[in-house]
Write a protein that binds this DNA or RNA. Structure first.
Lengths: 224, 224
DNA sequence: CTCGACAAAATTGTCAACAATAACGGAGCC
DNA sequence: GGCTCCGTTATTGTTGACAATTTTGTCGAG
């Protein structure tokens, strides 16, 4: 059954969030058609509301819409995922540098604690817990940086690549690789060292890109 | 009279383009209220259509919408303009580097010709012509880079900061400063030198940021 | 059996009307 | 005189129905 939450208030914002959730959670798979009437029935909202939500999600990059042909869940290819990671490499390094300049003592404690919890999660083999902490760390750095524009762009890109991110996190051995990279970012930011923080972020994202390519080569091994 | 083009086809895309144009051209000034009924009459489209258009423009960052209080033209502050330029610094340097790797011989000729025309425009004091060539250069570099994700983000940011960009271009002496920076970018890209191209783009955008701050300090000189 | 035209169904685009909400103004009260 | 309360007005949020477009399925000709 797909209509898990059909009794919600029909508010426009709610519908956007509901559809977005369904997409990032994988309930709506890539390339799946999103028929306005169906969604209207599923979420108990009017078609106009659903329509508005689809427009919004289109600009977020989660759905594709073509004239008179409807909307469907956007499928991000490996090439696009790499592109997104390249953009993230630039913007997260910017945010890391800014964060290193502006971080307060209280926030230093926060980041350090996050780092310790990530170490524990990896040591304990808690992959999903580590993945969650990972997201929280990146978001916290964006917030501390005070660069709202970059933060907004990064948030949008995260939604688009969440599927690839998740596949990556599940790869055996991946947490052991990314943990020290994350700790390096934390160290540099907490040491008020912008250049080092930016470099650490670049290294981390470069590693993500490599892992993305490797994961894909393994899934679709056409060596021809 | 504001209804200069009221006899257009009512297509949704057209309305989006029309409102966007009115905003970037300055016909709709920052913080101006955008009442759905008024726009509906002005552009000869239904209210639902302009509503959809406003949602789309909201996600492009050109208008602000608050629940039950309507939409207005978003005013980008100096601080936001600086933030945008910082993001541009990162992404344009990425695109410049990629373009330096991928540029073809034909495209080298194209960029070189653009550079010459920019020199002529500056020499002839054609400020608006130079501004147009400036935009074309940046867009062409984005296209050559093949980084569609970065190009999309940059395009969106350009719309938001077009007003500040324009104010900058009008500053006396500004073209003489930015011209050599642009030529340096062109040279590095045409020489297939990614590092140098990225650095040149960084230098250029840093200069833009400085000029932005200077221009603002001149307009609102509160030294207190 | 394949191809093309034609009809039917499904889906989106558009519109006008209705309900709900927030800003505005004036009257009454302390 | 200033403040609160309440009705008015302007504007947005929502709904349902209608028109336009695309896709699908069917039939007949070659």
């Amino acid at each position: 059954m797909t209509e898990s939450a059909a009794d919600r208030q029909p508010g426009e914002r709610s519908v956007v969030a509901a559809i977005r959730d369904a997409i990032v959670r994988g309930e709506f798979v890539p390339n799946q058609r999103l028929v306005e009437a169906d969604l209207s029935a599923q979420f108990g909202a009017s078609r106009a509301t659903v329509r508005a939500a689809l427009i919004e999600l289109t600009n977020e990059g989660l759905v594709e819409r073509v004239q008179n042909r409807g909307a469907r869940v956007r499928a991000v290819s490996l090439a696009e995922a790499v592109e997104i990671s390249e953009v993230r490499m630039m913007l997260e390094s910017l945010c890391a540098a800014k964060a290193a300049e502006r971080i307060s003592d209280a926030e230093v404690g926060e980041l350090r604690e996050l780092g310790e919890r990530m170490q524990m999660a990896v040591a304990g083999g808690d992959v999903v817990g580590y993945s969650g902490l990972n997201q929280r760390l990146h978001r916290r750095i964006r917030e501390i940086s005070g660069q709202r524009t970059a933060a907004q762009v990064l948030e949008r890109l995260r939604g688009q690549s969440v599927r690839h991110q998740f596949r990556l996190a599940m790869r055996p051995g991946r947490p052991q690789v990314s943990l020290p990279e994350h700790l390096a970012i934390i160290d540099a930011i907490c040491a008020n060292n912008p250049e080092k923080a930016a470099e650490a972020a670049r290294v981390h994202l470069a590693s993500v890109i490599e892992a993305l390519k490797a994961a894909d080569a393994e899934v679709s091994p056409l060596h021809a």
